[in-house]
Design a protein around this nucleic acid. Structure first.
Length: 467
RNA sequence: GUCCCCAUCGUCUAGAGGCCUAGGACACCUCCCUUUCACGGAGGCGACCGGGGUUCGAAUCCCCGUGGGGACGCCA
C-alpha cells in the first residue's frame, strides 16, 4: 500500500512553527516512502476561517519548499459528501438527533464538574430499545450526534507514543453535525482521511484525545483505520506554551528576520527527531533518514540560538547569486541602494562568515554603500591627537599606492614599525574612520573593497578636524 | 476535577538490560589562531526527577509518587 500522508491546517491564522514541523514530518514521511503528501484545508469553522489565512499557510509551505502532491482540498467544498455519510449513519442507527439546547448542555457540564467527574454528554436523546425519549420540542433544529459504543476500549499503537488505550466510558456521543446541518471537525476528518486514503495520520498531540472517537467513527463507517503518529508540541524559547498571545510567530516572520528556509527546516527536523549525532543535513538526506521511530514523545523547547548557529552555517554555504539577490532586497528595504562598487559578491565574500542572520549580514555592510555613522566613544578612544602625524604620513603613502591588499598592508605596516607602534594602534583609527566602529574584518581587506578614492575621502575630514 | 500523554546536561538530543567512567550539538568558560570583532581549532563545565521492585547487572523493564503538558466546544 502506498503511503499517503496529509497536512490539514485550519485557516484561522498563519502557519506557525509547530504547524510547520507537523507539515515537515508528514511531507518527509511521504517522500521517504515514495508516497503522496496531501494538503487539506479544514475550513468548516466558517466564522474563523479566512482566505488570508489560507494564503498565509500556502505562502509558508511554499517558502519552506514543502510541496504537496494533491490538493489543497477544501472541506467546505466537500459538504455534500459529508452530508451523505451523515445520512448513512443516521439510516443505520449509528447517529441520532439531539434537541438539547446549549443552555441545557452547559448546565449539565457544570453539574458534572461540580461532582468531580469528566464532563460528557449524558445521552438524553440517545435512542435505546424500550427507552422513552423526551418529547421533541417544536421549531428547534436538532444537532446530530454519533452513537459512540458504551462499553469496551479503543486502542491503537501510536507511532510516536506507543500503545494507547481509552475506555469508551470516557467518551461521549459527540456532535457530528451542527443545527444548521454543517458537519463538525471530527467527522470531516474521519471522512476525509478515509476517502483520501490516508495511511499515516501525523499530527499534533493535542489530537490524541480525538483519536479514539475518530477510530470509532471510522469503524462505524466501515473504513480502514490509518496509523497514527502524534507529535509533541513545541514550547517557546522560555519554555512556555506557544500561543497567539505568547511567542507564536508565523514561519514567514523567520523569512523577514533573515533566516534561510534550509536553516529553519533543518532546525525543525532536528527538534524532536534525531539521526544519531547528525546536526546539519540537507532535506534530501532528511527524507532518506526520516522515520517515526526516532521522534521524541516529549515536548521540545525552541532554541533561537541553535537556529542562529544553523542559519550561520547555511549563510556560509549559500549560493552567492541568491545571497546577492536577497541581501540587495534587504538593503533596499532599509533604504540602502547597492551600487556597482564595491561589488556586492566581493563584500559578501568577506562578510558572510560573520553573520547569523541575513538581516545582520545586510546591516553589517551598509557602510560600503553609505557614509558610516561614527561611534562617538570609539572616535574619542582611537582618534587621538598623537596618532595624527602617523595618519597623515600613512594617508600620503596610501594615496600613492597601487591599492592592492599587499600595498595597503605594507603601508600600514610601515606606519606601525617606523613609529614603533603596535598594529592595532594604527588599524583601529582607520577602522573607526572607515566603518564608524571598532569591529570589522581585516582593515586592509575592507580598504581594498572600499576603494582608494572612498577610503581617502573618509579619512580626510577626520585629519582636518583633528588639526 | 476526570481521562490521556510526557520526564537524560541550561536547551535540542544519543541511548532498544552489560558497549555508559552516560556520547554529540547549541549556549557558556579557557586556551590557540589573529590586526579589533567574528570565523576556525583544542580543551573545560554540565544530566539519567524521587522511591520501590524485576535482574548477576537498570538511564533502559514494572509499580508508586512528584513534576510538567494535553483533552474534556454546535473550535479545529
Amino acid at each position: 500500500m502506498t503511503v499517503r500522508t496529509r497536512f490539514a491546517p485550519s485557516p484561522t491564522g498563519f502557519l506557525h512553527i509547530g504547524g510547520a514541523r507537523t507539515a515537515l514530518f508528514s511531507w518527509a514521511y511521504a517522500r521517504k516512502h515514495a508516497g503522496q503528501f496531501i494538503l487539506r484545508i479544514e475550513d468548516t469553522d466558517v466564522a474563523r476561517s479566512t482566505p488570508e489565512a489560507v494564503q498565509a499557510i500556502l505562502d509558508g509551505m511554499n517558502w519552506l519548499g514543502l510541496n504537496w502532491d494533491e490538493g489543497p482540498f477544501y472541506q467546505m467544498q466537500r459538504m455534500d459528501r459529508y452530508k451523505e455519510m451523515i445520512q448513512k449513519l443516521l439510516d443505520e442507527g449509528k447517529a441520532y438527533h439531539c434537541y438539547a439546547s446549549r443552555e441545557e448542555l452547559d448546565a449539565m457540564r457544570e453539574q458534572q464538574m461540580a461532582q468531580g467527574i469528566k464532563p460528557r454528554y449524558d445521552g438524553r436523546w440517545r435512542p435505546e430499545p424500550g427507552k422513552q425519549l423526551p418529547p421533541v420540542p417544536a421549531g428547534i433544529p436538532p444537532v446530530m450526534r454519533f452513537r459512540n459504543p458504551l462499553t469496551g476500549n479503543v486502542s491503537w499503537d501510536d507511532l510516536v507514543k506507543g500503545h494507547i488505550t481509552v475506555s469508551n466510558e470516557e467518551l461521549d456521543d459527540l456532535i457530528i453535525a451542527r443545527a444548521d446541518g454543517t458537519p463538525t471537525y471530527n467527522f470531516c476528518v474521519v471522512v476525509d482521511d478515509w476517502e483520501m486514503g490516508i495511511t499515516q495520520v501525523i499530527r499534533g498531540d493535542d489530537h490524541v484525545n480525538n483519536t479514539p472517537r475518530q477510530i470509532n467513527m471510522l469503524e462505524a463507517l466501515g473504513a480502514n483505520i490509518p496509523q497514527y503518529a502524534h507529535l509533541s508540541m513545541i514550547l517557546g524559547d522560555d519554555g512556555q506554551k506557544l500561543s497567539k498571545r505568547h511567542g507564536a510567530v508565523s514561519v514567514m516572520q523567520y523569512h523577514e528576520d533573515g533566516y534561510l528556509p534550509e536553516a529553519v527546516l533543518n532546525y525543525l527536523a532536528r527538534l524532536g527527531w534525531s539521526h544519531g549525532n547528525e546536526e546539519i543535513f540537507t532535506m534530501d538526506q532528511f527524507c532518506q533518514w526520516f522515520d517515526l521511530d526516532h521522534i521524541t514523545p516529549s515536548a521540545a523547547q525552541f532554541n533561537t540560538e541553535k537556529l542562529n548557529w544553523l542559519n550561520a552555517n547555511y549563510i556560509k554555504q549559500a549560493d552567492m547569486a541568491e545571497l546577492v539577490a536577497d541581501i540587495t532586497k534587504r538593503l533596499a528595504a532599509i533604504g540602502v541602494a547597492v551600487t556597482t562598487q564595491p561589488a556586492l559578491p566581493d563584500v559578501l565574500g568577506l562578510y558572510r562568515e560573520r553573520a547569523s542572520t541575513l538581516n545582520a549580514l545586510a546591516s553589517s555592510i551598509i557602510y560600503f554603500y553609505q557614509k558610516p555613522v561614527v561611534d562617538a566613544e570609539a572616535k574619542q578612544k582611537h582618534l587621538t591627537a598623537e596618532i595624527l602625524p602617523v595618519m597623515h604620513a600613512l594617508t600620503q603613502q596610501l594615496a600613492a599606492s597601487d591599492w592592492t591588499i599587499d600595498a595597503i598592508h605594507g603601508a600600514i605596516e610601515y606606519a606601525v614599525t617606523s613609529n614603533a607602534l603596535k598594529f592595532p594602534k594604527v588599524a583601529m583609527p582607520l577602522r573607526v574612520m572607515l566603518t564608524g566602529g571598532t569591529q570589522s574584518p581585516s582593515i586592509d581587506a575592507v580598504m581594498v573593497l572600499l576603494g582608494k578614492t572612498e577610503t581617502l575621502a573618509r579619512i580626510q575630514p577626520f585629519l582636518a578636524e583633528l588639526q
